[in-house]
Structures are given as C-alpha cells and as structure tokens.
Design a protein around this nucleic acid. Structure first.
Lengths: 202, 202
DNA sequence: CGACCTCAATCAAATGATTGATGGAGCGTC
DNA sequence: GACGCTCCATCAATCATTTGATTGAGGTCG
C-alpha cells in the first residue's frame, strides 16, 4: 500500500544523507547529482541506479527526514505528564536536535518551501508539520484544562506561536542556544496562567 | 559611499519585479534569466546589459524588496501612541501586505534562506530583519514600562516570538487571514498584563 | 547462471553569458 | 536642415559549460 513507509537503508540512506548535507550547505539551488555521488564515493550512474531521477532523490530526502522525525517521536511515554512538563520536554527535544543536528532544520525549511510547488514533497512534509503542530495544540489544550495554562489560550494559534518562535530562533542572525532558551522562557510565561496573587508589586 | 541606496527605477525595476514574481512561483531553484527577460519582454542580452550577472540580479531583487520595505516604514508617525496600539498597527501592516502582495513574503523567505550562503544578500536582508525585530522589541519594552504589557516580558525574545508567529501563519498549510487574526489575538493575550481582578471565574 | 551493483564514457538539453550589429535620440558643425 | 558623431538600449545568433540522465560493459557473490 505504502511502500515508502519502510525506513531507508543501505546505499539510498547514504545518498539521502549526503544529499541532506549538500542541501544544508547550498540549498536546492546548488544541489547537483554529481556532487552527491562524489560525496558518497560512487559514480553518478550508480546513484541513478538507486534513485531514478532528481525528483525522486528529493522525495527520498524528504522521506529520510521523516524517518528521523518518526524515530524521535516514538519513544515518548509522556502523555500522562502535566502539560507544563510535556511542553518543557518538547522544548528540550527541539533544543537537542538544534545543537546536535542543526542541518535537519535547514533541510526541513528548504523542504517546507519546496512543498509549496512540489506535491510529492508536500505529501511527506505536510503530515510531519501537522503532527508537530497537533502535538503542541494538544499539550496547550491539556494545560488549559489543568488550569496550568491560561483559560483563554487558543490551542491552534498557540501551537502556531510556539512552532513559529522555535523556527524563528533558528533563522535569527543571533541564533544560538542562549537565544533559544530565552525564547522558550518567554513562551512559557506567555501560555502559563498567572499565579492568583503572588505578592503585590507597585 | 552607498550607491545602492538609490531606489531602483526603469528597466532594472521591471526586471526586479519580474524576477520577484518568478522567484515566488518557482523559487531560486527555478529562476532562469531567459524567463525573466521573456516576462519583461526583452532579449536576454538586454537583461545582461542592465544586470551583469545572475548574482547581481539576485542582489537587485533584494534591494528592490528593501525599497518596498523602506517605503512602508517611512510614513509612520506612531511612536507617540500607546504600545498596544502600536502593536496592533504592526499587525495591520503585516496583514495588509499579506493579503495585497503575498509574493513579498515568499520572496523574503527565499532571500532569508539564501542570505545564509550569500554575503551580498545578507548585507541587504540582514538590516531589514534587524529593523523589524528592533521595532517590535521597542514596542514591547514600551508596553512593559506603561504597564500595559507584562512586566516580566523579555522584549528581544518577545519580538522573536511575534515575528516568528507572523511568518509561521504564512507557512502554515491552513494559512489565510482568519488564522492570522487568531494568531494576532493570541499574541496580544500573551504579551498583555492581566487585568488585576476582572471577576472571579470558577 | 543470474541478481545485484558499479563504472567510464557519452548524450542531449538547458543555461549563463557574449558577440557583433542595428536603430534612434541628442548634439554640435557646416 | 543636413551631416557626422557618440551614447544608450536593444536584439538575433552563438558559445562554452553545466547538468540530469543513459548506455554498455563489467564485476561479485550465492
């Protein structure tokens, strides 16, 4: 039914990895089949043996990225945790990927742009984004129920806000873990319900 | 000193406009000098007469975008308004550009990506982003001072949050004015200080 | 042998850029 | 006004490379 649901292995996986790095370095604009083959250490013809066309190659990259995405989202027995903790864990996940494999975000951004004009890519990228977005919305809705987060929080809009902020920290000229942490802290303050009366200031 | 500070006019302006539309449609990846020339209605050689190389062309596009950006940011006698009103006006500006010339955002995104690898583009795009970011931070800081916005608001992080959210509404699969408005409403709730005690709920 | 994988060589199309020539507007001189 | 001159803008034709893809000939391992 969905043959593309099996994880990518072997040569195709090597090709996808090399392609991802090249995309991160030069964007789709500068992506050349020859360069990919060279980086894998194989002949161009061999590359075409495994991946019929450049279009298919880009789809392969998208699926390879999805593999990573799925891998990170399987082992997470956290739905029973309080919303605040779940949100913090989301931030941690993001932060980890951010410092360990920043290439993933660059490629993801490029793919998201490309999805605008490429249906095949959209079919792979769209559900990923929708899932991430949905998870955030779910956490926010849960937090509102708990009373931890604001009661007037719009889960959908809030999810968009969180996601957008995470991406923006990436794109910012002064990006880096420090800025990311400040943004996360600000997000937490933004969604949390204020403590009834802590101490009266001013 | 800075010859590129004069606004673009004449043929170069026509070329930049055509290029922008093509970039919005196909991205840098699919940008061809021939196509641009054809859309302007001139010969490829004529295009190269006005713009020496493709690299210079992309820089031209960046400067053309900056012209628009500057044009929108000159006539704004609003620094005396309350922070909340200023922020609302920022949202309105964004919304207007969003519905009237959505192409601008697509091209801006592409350029921001490209700025990562192209110093010339970065030199044009960087200051624009910094300015927009700075304006938002200024408004947030003002609002905190006024007491309209939260006292614990981090202006830098908040600006990033607002900017990121605006961009995210663009990229979202269900993008559109309706989602944008919801996001803006959520942002306002996020930064505003809560009214001391409205009426006790629950 | 046959399935799977690899490569050197080559192709055809696409693509950024150049060349050499043409027409016209402005301008001073006769 | 006519002539010659220069600059600007334009174009048809062409070039040199790049680039995605193919071909046909192995090679390895069970």
């Amino acid at each position: 039914m969905h043959p593309d649901y099996e994880p990518i292995t072997g040569r195709p996986a090597e090709i996808a990895l090399a392609a991802r790095r090249l995309i991160a370095e030069r964007g789709f604009e500068g992506l050349r089949t020859r360069d990919i083959a060279a980086r894998v250490g194989i002949n161009v013809a061999t590359l075409h043996y495994h991946v019929p066309s450049k279009e298919a190659l880009i789809e392969l990259v998208a699926r390879s990225l999805r593999d990573d995405f799925v891998a990170q989202n399987v082992t997470r027995p956290r739905k029973h945790l309080p919303a605040l903790d779940q949100l913090r864990l989301e931030f941690l996940d993001f932060r980890e990927t951010l410092v360990e494999t920043p290439e993933i975000f660059i490629v993801m951004t490029e793919l998201t742009e490309r999805a605008r004009r490429d249906e095949k890519v959209k079919a792979v990228v769209g559900p990923m984004l929708a899932f991430a977005h949905g998870e955030l919305a779910r956490i926010l809705a849960l937090g509102s129920e708990e009373g931890t987060f604001r009661a007037d929080l719009d889960p959908e809009a809030g999810a968009l806000m969180i996601f957008g902020t995470m991406v923006a920290t990436q794109r910012s000229p002064r990006r880096g873990p420090e800025l990311f942490d400040r943004a996360c802290a600000e997000l937490l303050r933004s969604v949390q319900a204020q403590p009834p009366e802590s101490g009266l200031a001013t």
